[in-house]
C-alpha cells in the first residue's frame, strides 16, 4: 500500500513494517469503538420499558455461530501459516474456508435478527433492542468488511498464482483484522449472551 516504505523496507525505526504497525494502531482504535458500543449496551440493557428483553436470546443458534467464528480464526491462522511457509494450496484453501465461515456467521446473524424482529424486537421497541442491534450490527459490519477484505486477498493470490515477496505480510495483516473481529465476538458472546440477566 505504501511506496515511501520502499526504501526504508530494510530499516525502520522500530524494526517493524509500517503497514503492520498501522493495522495494530487501528485495532487499538477499534477497541475504543466497540468499548463505547458495549458501554451503551450495558447501560441500556435493563431499560426495557416494553417488549422483549434479554430472554429473547436463543442459546443454540448463537453457540453454533460462535463456534463457527472461532473455527474461522483457526482457518485464518492456518492460511497465514501456509503463506509464511510457501504452501500456496493450503493458504488458498484456508482463506476460502475462512471466508465461507464468515459468511455462515453472517447468515446466522441475519437469521437471528429476522427471528427477533418477528418476535417484536425492533430498533424502536426499547433501549435493549436498539443497543443490541447497533452493537451486534456493527460487529456484523466488521465481519462483512473482513469477508470482502479476505476475498480480495484470495482473488489477488489466485491471479498472481504464486507467493510474492509481500504475500505473507498481506495475509498476516488481513489475519490480524480477522482475529480482532473474532476476539470482539469472544467478549460480546460472554457479556451479551451468557451474562444476560444481570
Amino acid at each position: 500500500m505504501s511506496a515511501a516504505t520502499h526504501e526504508t523496507e530494510h530499516h525502520t525505526s522500530l524494526g517493524v513494517d509500517n503497514r503492520k504497525l498501522l493495522m495494530w494502531i487501528f485495532l487499538a482504535s477499534e477497541c475504543l469503538f466497540f468499548g463505547s458500543l458495549l458501554s451503551t449496551y450495558l447501560i441500556f440493557k435493563g431499560e426495557s420499558l416494553s417488549g422483549p428483553g434479554t430472554d429473547i436470546f436463543a442459546f443454540e443458534i448463537t453457540s453454533i455461530s460462535t463456534f463457527v467464528l472461532l473455527m474461522s480464526s483457526l482457518s485464518m491462522v492456518l492460511a497465514v501459516y501456509g503463506a509464511q511457509h510457501g504452501q500456496l494450496g493450503l493458504m488458498k484453501l484456508m482463506l476460502l474456508c475462512t471466508i465461507l465461515l464468515g459468511l455462515v456467521f453472517l447468515g446466522f446473524q441475519v437469521y437471528e435478527f429476522k427471528t427477533f424482529a418477528s418476535e417484536g424486537l425492533t430498533l424502536s421497541t426499547n433501549q435493549f433492542g436498539a443497543s443490541f442491534y447497533i452493537l451486534t450490527g456493527f460487529h456484523g459490519c466488521h465481519v462483512g468488511v473482513g469477508v470482502l477484505y479476505l476475498s480480495s486477498l484470495l482473488i489477488s493470490s489466485v491471479r498472481r498464482n504464486g507467493i510474492g515477496k509481500e504475500t505473507p505480510l498481506y495475509i498476516d495483516i488481513g489475519g490480524l483484522y480477522w482475529h480482532f473481529v473474532d476476539i470482539v465476538w469472544i467478549v460480546l458472546f460472554t457479556v451479551v449472551y451468557l451474562i444476560p440477566a444481570y
Binding site: 487499538a28 482504535s29 475504543l32 469503538f33 463505547s36 441500556f44 433501549q127 436498539a130
Partner: peptide, 25 residues
C-alpha cells in the same frame, strides 16, 4: 485522536439513528 474519535463516532451514529431510524438512545 486515534483513541477518542471512535467514541464520538459511536455517539454520532446513535444520534443519526435517533433522528432517522426510530431508535431512542
Amino acid at each position: 485522536l486515534i483513541l477518542s474519535l471512535p467514541i464520538v463516532t459511536v455517539a454520532l451514529v446513535m444520534l443519526y439513528f435517533d433522528r432517522n431510524f426510530t431508535t431512542n438512545f
